[in-house]
Structure formats: structure tokens, C-alpha cells
Design a protein around this nucleic acid. Sequence first.
DNA 1: CCTAGATCATCAGTATACTGTCAATCAACA
DNA 2: TGTTGATTGACAGTATACTGATGATCTAGG
Lengths: 170, 170
Amino acid sequence: MPSKPAPPITIDAVYAAPGYLFRRMQQIAVSIFMEECKAFDLTPVQYAALIAIHTHPGIDATRLSAVIAFDRSTLGSVIERLQAKDFIERKPAPEDKRIKLLYLTKSGAAILREIIPAVERAQARMLEPLKPADRKALMGLLVQLVDLNNEASRVPLRAEDALEHLGKGG
Amino acid sequence: MPSKPAPPITIDAVYAAPGYLFRRMQQIAVSIFMEECKAFDLTPVQYAALIAIHTHPGIDATRLSAVIAFDRSTLGSVIERLQAKDFIERKPAPEDKRIKLLYLTKSGAAILREIIPAVERAQARMLEPLKPADRKALMGLLVQLVDLNNEASRVPLRAEDALEHLGKGG
DNA sequence: CCTAGATCATCAGTATACTGTCAATCAACA
DNA sequence: TGTTGATTGACAGTATACTGATGATCTAGG
């Protein structure tokens, strides 16, 4: 039985590597998102944050970072920008002076309703080159892989963390 | 025939969106890469740049950005860091004063040989949670999708650009 | 009550990404 | 030959990501 040959040090090996393909696809996805949504001045990250705050009004920044699996440090500046655009507001929590609670403003709720069709178009465009059956297969595999690799990332997704702020007695 | 229902504005819709999954998978891939390669002080981008320079010695920065589909502006600082670590060197092109040609140093060639096993481990770990058949299926679909969406990104891959510096008379 | 450990927000530092601009240089053409 | 247009490298500005540190605050235990 011949042993596996040493991989060649060429750029073609990189083109077929999972890490390269994931990076490339992410670049493409962001590019398509920005193109479809350029009228709204919202990045993909800002959009996800708005959706999460809409789903969990009164969430704090640390829990928000767990709910969308975004880096906590980065999220600070994302929140600042959303606040500067008057899409969200921060209110100090009465029972805990460390925490600032996040809420959508009317502008934030409005832009969320308006941007949805553009976001849907963007998501559809990302997969458009594939046949419908292949789109389903790819999404199914990706959902699995992201879920099974959840702990591998420094900021794992903790969707259930969002519930904590509703009542600590749970 | 009922019209498609309006998508709900909830975080669960985001979890299943292609754009979110690509971003998440990219985060996971970088995290795994950095973990496996932490002994070498090389990022995924720096690794890809080194491989490309190894494959195309004497390439210039603009062509390099086309060959690995990385942003040209960002690549400037990537090159600076690689040069600071003494992994590459830049030589002015005798026939064109605008261009600086990129070459691996001995250190650069050495670290490339040494890091390959760690990179292979990282790439394998990214797909490890899937069954072997599913890994193949996912990679096949991703290669297709990235290729078919190549023009959608601001910096499309132009692998053939690398050949130009070898002889403009082609 | 007071301290030890945990939690929250913030900041400093590094590394990707992308947009847009600029000067130096080159190539092509009138 | 002199000018136009394209190319190259560099830079400024914005936005994500991650690491690590810090101070304010809360909770638990003594």
C-alpha cells in the first residue's frame, strides 16, 4: 500500500482547500449583500444585530454577541454605529448598573421591514448559480457543519443565552 | 395558488441564511487554522500569499492579489508583515520602475515546508464532523459555487494573470 | 459588612477587507 | 515628441474580527 504522497506546494492546492473556499465564498456573499442593500446603508453584521434585537428586545451586548456568534469586542463598535444611525437605543438596566439594554427605535424597526426584500434577493443570488437541488444539499451540509463545529470557534453560538434576561429565576 | 408568505423577521431566519452560514464557517475555519498553526506565526492570508509567491517567484503585488483573489489594498500590509518577518523580499523591477517583484527568502521557503502538515491538519479538521461522502459533496458544490460567482466579488480570481510577468510577448 | 471571584462594558493593539484617491511611471498614439 | 490613458504602489478612511487588559459592578461567602 503506497503512503499518501506529500501534498505539492502550489497555489492550486490552495484553490481546493476548504479554508480558502470558505473565505472566498464569504467575500462573495458580503459583496452581493452590499450590492443589493446599498440603498439602506446596512452591513450584514449590522443587519443581523438588528434582527436579533428585534427578536430579543432588551437584550444586552454580551448576550447579543452569543446569540449571533459575533465577537464581543467588535460588537461594541457595531452597536455604536447602529446607535449613531438612530436604529437602536441603549437604556441602562435599573437593577444592574453594568448593563445597557438594547432596543430598536422606530427608524430601526422601519428599516428592518424595508430591507427584508433586498436581503432575500441577496441570499437568493448567492446560491443562484447552483441547481435548486444542489442549493438544498449545500445548505443542508453547511447547517450541519457549522453546528457540529460550533465549539471550534472562539465565539460559539449560544442562541439560548437570549432567554436569560427575561427572568433569572428560570 | 397562494403567494409566498412574507418571511418572518426573526433570528432563526438568519441562522438558516447562506450569508450567515458562510460567515460563520469562515470564522470557524480561521479559528481552526490559527490553532493548528500557532507555532508558526502565520495567518491564513499570509500563508496563501507565501504559497502564491512560491508558485510564481518574481510576481508583483497587483498580480498576486489577482492570483489569490485578495484585496489589493489589504495585500500591501500583508506584504509588509511578511517582509518584516523576513519571509519574503522585494526587488525593484529593472525594466519598470513602478513594480516591485516578490521573492521568498530562505526563511520563507523553510517555514512553508514546515507548516504544510499543520495546514493539512487544519483543513481536515474543518470538514471532520461530516461523513467522508458529505465532505466530498460539500467541497464539490463549493468549488462550483465559488467559480460561478467569481465575478460577483469585487476582487475576482484571475489565476492566469500570474503568467503575464514571465513574458509580455506571450 | 467586606472581600474574592464573576460579569459587563470599554479600550488598546493587530490583522483582514473594501472604497476611493494620489503621484509616479509606463505605453500608445497623434 | 508631447500628451492621454492605463498601471502600480501607497495611503486615508471605514468596518469586521480577535486577543488581552482594565475598571465598574454584582454576587457569594465568610
